[in-house]
């Protein structure tokens, strides 16, 4: 893929749950190596959009592609074909996702969580996967917690394991769905520090967050969503400090 192809490209993406239209035509682009922060009130469709990107949700209209390839569909002679489950899974493996409630596998140790998918999906040997897993847990500052089960870890530690688990698949894109919203305030910093390092390392990231400070410091692009549409998008300096829309202004005044 050439560098000119954006990592994520959405054109008029719509998503309905029954009659409830959650996304009403989202158009945006995320370039390779870019960090995009998605802001907006709850219910504005940020998380749904994130889940559409790795096809955990099927979009109803529009086009959504990752690294130049359509998500969940194959285009042949202008006709869309649904992808088979196995092919969808292979695409998902290239996209890491971090959840608000961590969703670690409780029956596996921290290292087990990190090595499970590389062994199962990528077919790595246990030895190689463990080596990779230890390095990653060390990078997120948890080298001493390899054998700990998730229940015995704090929320911040669990979230860092979850980030290591996603990184173990060597993804080309990382999606963060409110990664610090479920954490005690004092634990937020550790998780944001890991994400900051990741951004500096050149990872393409889409972060749904309420951490305005993080967005201002790390994001290349800030998108403000409300009621299923993009209200405003641009450089953090513009959107966060000089918002053009009244809706953005009132949201920011409540969050800051």
């Amino acid at each position: 893929m050439s560098a000119a192809v954006p990592m994520v490209s959405a054109e008029g993406v719509h998503k309905r749950f029954g009659r409830n239209e959650v996304l009403k035509g989202i158009t945006l682009t995320v370039a390779r190596g870019e960090v995009m922060c998605l802001l907006g009130p709850s219910g504005s469709g940020k998380s749904t959009f994130l889940r559409c990107i790795n096809h955990l949700e099927k979009i109803n209209a529009g086009r959504l592609s990752v690294d130049g390839e359509l998500v969940g569909y194959r285009e042949q002679n202008g006709v869309l074909h649904e992808m088979r489950e196995r092919d969808v899974a292979r695409k998902r493996a290239e996209i890491g996702m971090v959840f608000q409630h961590f969703n670690l596998f409780p029956h596996m140790t921290a290292l087990g969580n990190v090595t499970c998918a590389p062994m199962l999906v990528q077919g790595l040997s246990a030895e190689v996967a463990r080596e990779r897993g230890r390095v990653l847990l060390d990078e997120v500052g948890l080298s001493d917690k390899c054998d700990a089960y998730p229940v015995s870890l704090s929320g911040g530690q669990q979230q860092r394991v979850a980030i290591a688990r996603a990184l173990a698949m060597k993804p080309k894109l990382m999606l963060f769905d409110e990664p610090t919203s479920a954490l005690d305030p004092e634990l937020v910093g550790d998780v944001l520090a890991v994400m900051r390092d990741l951004a500096r390392g050149g990872m393409t990231m889409i972060v749904v967050t309420h951490e305005i400070g993080f967005a201002r410091e790390v994001a290349d692009q800030v998108v403000f969503m409300d009621d299923g549409v993009v209200v405003e998008a641009g450089a953090p300096h513009d959107v966060l400090l000089n918002p053009r829309h009244e809706r953005t202004r009132s949201f920011l005044s409540k969050v800051l």
Binding site: N54, L56, R92, M97, F99, N103, L120, M169
Partner: peptide, 16 residues
């Protein structure tokens, strides 16, 4: 449900 979602996001199939 989050467990299934996490597993799928890591590229596991339904069977896995």
């Amino acid at each position: 449900e989050g467990q299934t979602m996490a597993a799928q996001s890591l590229g596991m199939t339904r069977g896995q």
